[in-house]
Amino acid sequence: MNLKVKHIIATALFAFIALTSANAQCIDLVKTKGFTYLDTSKYIPEARFNALPLREGDNVDIYKSFFKGRTYRIVVVGAENMPKLNFKVTNFQRQILYDSNITKEESWDFVSDKNQNLIISVEVPEAAKDKKPQSGCIAVVVGFSY
């Protein structure tokens, strides 16, 4: 096997290991930082896993159902090496119901006034031009009060 092929295989293996390790960190992020901000003494975390590895400059939209009369907390957190994340909650017509750029908070508490599907848009700010973009997990944790 020539050196070039060896390099390709080794690089692919390292990429695989790095990705697997990044994914494993996402569930930890949800259960530590995510649950802390959610305050599980007040809110029951919903069961879906809404976390994934992203890089600076990336964004993700999460589509979710919210039910009339329920009190929810939406928490958006990132890994330690990630910058502070911005998130917006909009309806499907992209009308903004919440914007963390204004409140500067990691979470939003609200009572859903109707049965509705909403979009939680998370944006990882771009890295400075002279810096290599960081990558790490981001997690959206939703809980409801009981």
Partner: peptide, 25 residues
């Protein structure tokens, strides 16, 4: 392939356990 994500969409359908709470609580 999630190794080169720029704009991702996650459709977070209700989990069976959350669904049961919404219906039977």
């Amino acid at each position: 392939d999630s190794s080169d994500i720029r704009e991702e969409i996650l459709i977070s359908m209700l989990a069976p356990s959350d669904m049961a709470v919404m219906l039977m609580d």
